[in-house]
Simulated scan of single mutants.
Amino acid sequence: MNPEGTPAPGATRAPLHLVDASLYVFRAWHSMPDEFRDAHGWPTNAVHGFARFLLELLERERPRHIAIAFDEALDSCFRNRLYPAYKANRDPAPEELRRQFAHCKALCAALGLAVLADHDYEADDLIGSALHRARPAGYRGIIVSADKDLSQLLGEHDEQWDFARGQRWGAAGVKARHGVHAHQIADYLALTGDAVDNIPGIGGVGAKTAAVLLAHFGSLDALLEQVDEVAFLRLRGAAQVAARLREQREHALLWRQLTTIACDVPLPYDGPAATRAEADPEMLEALADTLRFGPMTRRRLRTAAGLDSGAGEAPPVPLPA
């Protein structure tokens, strides 16, 4: 359902859930109390928080097609080769957190979920590539993330889902949230910059100015081709904005390379969509022991994995025709 309570466009298409896992791991790392420890004494608060999120998602949606994307390319991404300062403002993850990322990946694999991770590409690129492969085969994407960068992937039938806030929106809802259309998000971020990723943007161009420019010109390419017209727009400091766009043209194009999600990344599964596989009960049990999950979490994991029949459990979701 969309926020108005009516079926989302393309709701009859088979859904492919694409989860931006790192967002939820980091959120758990910062919000969960540091009282959970594994069998070796290492912290497991992020794993416990991520497991709660994952179980709630699986219990609520019962997805047949799902992929969980992790960021491994924190300093080895192709974007770092284009711009060495990309994300250089971020401190390296401590060993206590890196170990928990490995546990989160293992937990997903034990549940039969496709795990996407690559040293050259970010989670956004893996999600974009999975959606790009699945869409022609009749799937619609449900991107589980609050990250505005991912809104550029939304097509007519897709949705983005801020799971923590319980908010969903499609391509048509992006403008109300960010001031530009879904297909303009990469251009918008190239103009405004993105402090989280250490992308400077164009000096003096803020969110409102970028939205006005893209509303008038449609794209960054058209804006740069017709930059002489900018000075005549009803825009505060229009002449100065035009001058900066001329001076920083090559930078703008570089920033757009950084903000554009790659959709041609090789994926580790066959077929158009990531079909959920059978769970690995031995691996699941070993992880539960190592991570010292309580009996409630263990039961939920086994039920989610199809190893126990839960009372009132919904019937299995059939494969799409």
Rank of each mutant, 00 (worst) to 15 (best):
Ser76Gln: 05
Phe78Ala: 11
Arg79His: 08
Arg79Ala: 09
Leu82Asn: 12
Leu82Ser: 11
Tyr83Glu: 03
Pro84Ser: 03
Pro84Glu: 00
Ala85Cys: 12
Ala85Tyr: 11
Lys87Glu: 00
Ala88Leu: 06
Ala88Phe: 07
Asn89Leu: 02
Asn89Glu: 00
Asn89Pro: 05
Asn89His: 01
Arg90Ile: 02
Asp91Ala: 15
Pro92Thr: 05
Pro94Cys: 00
Pro94Ala: 01
Glu95Val: 12
Glu96Gly: 11
Leu97Thr: 07
Arg98Ser: 10
Arg98Pro: 03
Arg99Asp: 00
Gln100Cys: 02
Gln100His: 04
Ala102Gln: 13
Ala102Asp: 13
Ala102Arg: 14
His103Lys: 14
Lys105Phe: 02
Lys105Gln: 14
Lys105Tyr: 01
Ala106Glu: 11
Cys108Asp: 00
Cys108Ser: 06
Ala109Phe: 06
Ala110Thr: 05
Ala110Ser: 15
Leu111Cys: 08
Leu111Glu: 02
Leu111Ser: 11
Leu111Arg: 08
Gly112Pro: 12
Leu113Lys: 08
Val115Ile: 10
Leu116Asp: 03
Leu116His: 09
Asp118Asn: 14
His119Trp: 12
His119Thr: 14
Tyr121Val: 07
Glu122Pro: 02
Ala123Met: 00
Ala123His: 07
Asp124Thr: 07
Asp124Gly: 07
Asp125Met: 11
Asp125Phe: 11
Asp125Arg: 13
Ile127Glu: 00
Gly128Asp: 01
Ala130Trp: 02
Leu131Pro: 04
Leu131Ala: 10
His132Ser: 15
Ala134Arg: 06
Pro136Glu: 03
Pro136Phe: 02
Ala137Val: 05
Gly138Ile: 07
Gly138Trp: 03
Gly138Thr: 07
Tyr139Trp: 10
Tyr139Gly: 12
Ile142Val: 15
Ile143Tyr: 07
Ile143Met: 08
Val144Thr: 13
Ala146Pro: 15
Ala146Met: 13
Lys148His: 13
Lys148Thr: 13
Leu150Val: 01
Ser151Ala: 15
Ser151Pro: 06
Gln152Met: 01
Leu153Cys: 06
Gly155Cys: 07
Glu156Lys: 14
Gln160Trp: 03
Gln160Phe: 03
Gln160Cys: 09
Asp162Met: 06
Asp162Ile: 04
Ala164Gly: 12
Gly166Cys: 04
Gln167Asp: 12
Gln167Ser: 14
Arg168Met: 05
Ala172Ser: 14
Ala172His: 13
Gly173Trp: 04
Gly173Val: 01
Lys175Gly: 09
Lys175Phe: 08
His181Asp: 14
Ala182Glu: 01
Ala182Ile: 03
Ala182Pro: 05
His183Asp: 14
Ile185Ala: 04
Asp197Cys: 06
Asp197Ser: 07
Asp197Trp: 05
Asn198Trp: 04
Gly201Ile: 00
Ile202Leu: 00
